[in-house]
Amino acid sequence: MTSNLKITTAVALLAASTASPAAAELKYENNSGGYVLIYGQLNPAIISVDDGEQTETNLLDNDLSRSRVGLRLMQPFGANEFGFRFETGLGLPNSTEVDQNGSFYSGWSREDLRHVDFWLEGDWGRFSAGQGSMASDGAAEADLSYVGTALYSFLADSNNSFIFRDPAGVLSGPTVGGITDSFDGSRRARVRYDTPEFSGFTASVAWGQNVLTSGDDRDYYDAALRYANEFGGADFSAAVGYQVRDDDGTKRSDVVGSASVLLQSGLSFTVAGGSRDDDAAGASDPSYYYAKVGYEGDWFSFGKTGVGVHYYDGSDFNLDGSSTTGWGVGAVQKVESINTDVYLTYQEYEYEDSVANYQDLSTWVLGAKWQF
């Protein structure tokens, strides 16, 4: 088994920056109740992937929550409030851009634009337009656990492009990203409406297109219902979403939901699940369920600690009749003085289909997310 540590100068400098003191909030207020806020984060991680024959270790920007910078503007507008948000990824070497054959780092591109979003909000709800979250974005990720910073319902952020090896050691299988999905909603150039909150419930609808990827002329539309409340000191959050991708009448639809509860003791329970129905010829209709148990506490004077274990079970990804299993453990430690979350995770992935029982793949991640 070989090991290869690849560290680029840009990402090494990024890692060093997490040791800098936390910056003061970059917020600028005007005399009419409005403000401009500049924010961002850096999230470098050492990621080691073992495919059963070879180990690849790299220092990369973690796609779980990639490094970014943004600007938010809020301004009262009569009885309403006007908002604008611009946010972009930094285009650093990313954990999705590496596999056993090397790096295919693309640099910054327009697909790194996350938000160019305008909205108007009042007692009647909120209307949004521009590049931003569709209604079902986050519907698979209702998660109140502190360890959710590092472990959540999508398991392939750190090793998305890595390929499974067959029993002979050949890279003939699908990628990790091809056999795991949470069916969570996306960001598009869209129009969206959110209702006012009513007894903890909020509903959303949206229609949009993928203008950041050339050649994608499909229509996307979705709806979601969210709920959040507190019961006897326990926090509860849940979401359900329905989304459709329409390609000239050939539709792919997803139903997804998630729920999470955080008890006063620090114990948390999170579940998620979803299914897909694809009209395209030869397409499979995968589904999955997910569960996590977490615990958090103030064990150290410098910040909160979260630990957890999660499990993922999927079927019919990549090929009908296939089976996907994933599990992992993780810990997250807050360092308040520099506003940084330091995290360590270990995850294993198993996949089999009618072609072969592929070798298991495992991943260690040690990272630090610094926010300003």
Rank of each mutant, 00 (worst) to 15 (best):
W124H: 09
F82W: 11
V355D: 12
D181I: 07
Q333C: 02
V256D: 02
A206E: 02
T202I: 11
G132P: 00
L361Q: 11
D219V: 06
A22K: 03
P174T: 14
G273T: 05
Y288D: 07
L64K: 13
L267F: 09
E97Q: 12
D254F: 01
L90G: 09
E81A: 10
D298L: 06
R188K: 14
G130C: 02
E197C: 00
V36Y: 00
N101E: 14
G125V: 12
S109A: 08
G330Y: 07
L90A: 14
D285H: 02
S161A: 15
I163R: 08
Q243H: 11
E230V: 06
Y288C: 04
Y295T: 15
F154K: 12
L92E: 05
V170E: 09
S354V: 13
G326W: 01
A156F: 03
A228K: 12
N101Y: 10
D246F: 04
V355I: 09
S275M: 12
L14I: 15
Y35M: 12
V309T: 07
L71W: 00
N229E: 13
D341V: 08
A203K: 05
S95F: 03
L361C: 10
V244M: 09
L225D: 06
L171V: 13
A79T: 04
R72T: 15
R245M: 04
K6A: 14
V365Y: 02
S145D: 11
Y28R: 12
T202E: 08
T250G: 04
T325R: 10
Y351N: 05
S275G: 11
R165H: 12
F372Y: 08
R192N: 07
P286N: 08
Q41L: 06
G367P: 02
R126C: 04
A156C: 07
G249L: 09
D137V: 11
P76T: 14
A135E: 12
L319P: 00
D181P: 03
G249N: 13
V211I: 10
W370H: 10
A156W: 00
G122E: 11
R192P: 01
A206H: 03
G233D: 06
S258W: 01
D51K: 09
S275L: 10
M134G: 08
G273V: 02
V307K: 04
D316R: 11
Y35V: 15
S172W: 00
Y343D: 08
R188H: 13
G249D: 11
G326Q: 11
N43E: 03
T88Y: 00
A223S: 04
Y28K: 10
S103Q: 13
M74Y: 02
T363V: 14
E97S: 15
G249Y: 05
N62E: 13
S153Y: 07
D137E: 12
F84Q: 03
A203R: 06
Y290P: 07
K27L: 01
E336D: 10
S253D: 07
L171M: 14
S145T: 09
S315H: 15
S260M: 05
L155N: 14
Q347I: 11
N94A: 09
G326R: 07
Q209V: 10
S158K: 14
L92A: 13
Y193P: 00
S153M: 08
K292G: 09
E141Y: 01
Y105W: 05
E53V: 10
L59P: 02
D217R: 10
S268Q: 04
L64T: 03
L344C: 10
L155D: 14
I38W: 00
